[in-house]
């Protein structure tokens, strides 16, 4: 995959080429491509004079970073304690069943990816689902179908 080095350069400059912000740079790149392309890791490492292996190590350590392309919408099902107790695992299963994919996978049409997250900090509204930047509290199995429809029909882009 070819990456836009001009865009990546501007991300690197935004953090004053400071190596301690490599994670933040990766996160910004991921926002561009919805994942972190190998070429981008390699490019950033070269620019910062850091071994590629260190960049790869970081990219695989942090759960927020994905080395695989993600769908247009990422469904984060919260499995924090409160969500676990109030049926989060069932919500996750329902998403998997409805979309015919497992956690960590992307639907064939590239529309959805499912991921889990260990607490989004809105425990009072458990079980919680976050799709892109929209939060859905007190999710039920019926709401799962509604969410999928809402994003499929382009109500939310």
């Amino acid at each position: 995959m070819e990456v836009d080095t001009a865009k990546i350069d501007s991300i690197i400059e935004k953090y004053n080429r400071d190596r301690s912000y490599m994670l933040a740079m990766f996160q910004d790149v991921q926002r561009l491509y919805r994942y972190l392309p190998k070429e981008a890791i390699s490019y950033i490492c070269k620019q910062l004079d850091i071994p590629f292996s260190k960049g790869y190590e970081m990219a695989t350590f942090y759960k927020a970073l994905s080395l695989k392309p993600r769908g247009r919408h990422t469904i984060h099902v919260c499995l924090g304690t409160a969500c676990h107790l109030r049926g989060g695992p069932n919500i996750l299963e329902t998403f998997e069943r409805e979309l015919h994919i497992k956690t960590g996978e992307t639907t064939e049409d590239g529309r959805f990816s499912i991921e889990t997250v260990n607490c989004l900090g809105a425990c009072a509204l458990a079980p919680l689902v976050r799709v892109d930047e929209h939060d859905f509290g007190k999710t039920t199995q019926a709401v799962v179908k509604k969410i999928i429809n809402e994003f499929t029909d382009g109500v939310k882009s």
Partner: peptide
């Protein structure tokens, strides 16, 4: 400000 990367 530093942003974490989703690692407990």
């Amino acid at each position: 400000v530093f942003r974490g990367g989703g690692a407990f």
